[in-house]
């Protein structure tokens, strides 16, 4: 992608690296004297590596910790333990003053295009706000021009700088949010469900925009979503999360065509395929019950309460995220076994 940079020597450095990241939120009771009665184990030991120009998809259901992970990666929440490096710089335990320069390199795109833009600011002020915060990036007199270029880059008319967010549709607002995130020319964008609030016909527009920007700017994405079909289109690598842990990690093809973890298989088989001819012919794994509470996750393997393969061993030991003997990619399951559920026809 960055052919002209041509740094073919040595292995490339990851632009974003998370090692053993843990985030526990204390659950407190009492009004005056607060005592901690437990912890929400939102993220529990996640390792990730992201290289320039690549996209890492993170999928999982609500409560799996993917949104907390997004906040940790951009330094909005400090991790309980573990390390997060952006371009080789540790951000996990920086003070808010020291973290400010790093913010230029990693930015966040939000899910809800209605609450992520201040309704009382014009589009020009919203997209230009990064320059007011980092005053040394662009001299004052050139900012207006830069804002217009950013709007143009995300496919909006530069003439719209004086409009307010409510005058735009959801897809357009999402573009405004992307323009704001790109203003400081970051290397990494963490996208937290960027299209799930949009209509189908608009989702494609925003995904294509993200892909074009990736090519033009050499961006790396962490693409967090619950919609597996969207992730398949944009991700090079995919990490599947369940209750704060990554249960399977591999290339897009490995995860979608050769899933090994029972949860990944169930998740994939539950996604309806828009083809009526496949009705009743697809292999369906319907899981029982709901995701357990992250305050008191099951012992051992956290998926065991809903898993059809679970044995006593699963309740006692925590499976590691290993490739295993016959495996091709890391899977956290004692009984990992490849099973194609997306194309499977009975």
């Amino acid at each position: 992608m960055n052919a002209e940079l041509g740094q073919a020597d040595a292995a490339p450095e990851p632009v974003l690296e998370a090692t053993g990241v843990v985030k526990h939120f204390p659950v407190q009771r009492g009004i005056v004297v607060k005592r901690t009665v437990g912890h929400v184990q939102a993220v529990d030991g996640v390792d990730l590596k992201l290289y320039a120009g690549k996209t890492l998809g993170v999928v999982g259901e609500s409560g799996c910790g993917k949104s907390t992970l997004a906040k940790l990666l951009v330094g909005l929440e400090p991790p309980t333990s573990g390390s997060i490096k952006v371009l080789g710089k540790e951000i996990g335990n920086l003070s808010s003053r020291r973290i400010r320069p790093v913010r230029r390199d990693i930015q966040l795109v939000f899910q809800d295009p209605y609450t992520s833009l201040n309704p009382r600011m014009t589009v020009g002020d919203i997209v230009g706000e990064p320059f007011e915060i980092h005053t040394d990036v662009i001299p004052r007199d050139k900012r207006a021009k830069e804002v217009k270029e950013l709007l143009d880059m995300v496919g909006l008319s530069p003439d719209h700088v004086n409009r307010y967010p409510h005058q735009f549709s959801g897809g357009q607002r999402q573009r405004i949010g992307i323009a704001r995130a790109l203003a400081l020319r970051p290397q990494v964008l963490v996208c937290d469900e960027p299209v799930s609030a949009l209509d189908v016909s608009i989702q494609g527009q925003v995904i294509n925009l993200l892909e074009r920007l990736q090519e033009e700017l050499g961006l790396a994405y962490v693409f967090i979503a619950h919609d597996l079909s969207v992730v398949r289109h944009i991700a090079d690598e995919v990490a599947v999360m369940y209750l704060g842990k990554v249960v399977e990690h591999g290339t897009s093809a490995e995860i979608y065509d050769h899933p090994r973890h029972p949860y990944t298989q169930a998740l994939l088989s539950a996604v309806p395929v828009p083809d009526p001819d496949l009705r009743g012919h697809r292999e369906e794994i319907v899981l029982q019950g709901d995701v357990p509470s992250p305050i008191n996750p099951p012992s051992g393997c956290r998926f065991r309460t809903r898993c059809w393969k679970a044995t006593e061993k699963c309740a006692e030991e925590v499976p590691g995220l290993d490739v295993g003997d016959k495996g091709t990619h890391p899977t956290a399951c004692f009984y990992a076994e490849e099973r194609d559920v997306t194309h499977a026809v009975k």
Partner: peptide, 16 residues
């Protein structure tokens, strides 16, 4: 325009 799990294709067709 709908992305699917069972097919790969980079550029999604969109409704302009």
């Amino acid at each position: 325009a709908i992305p699917r799990v069972d097919t790969v294709g980079r550029e999604l067709e969109v409704i302009p």
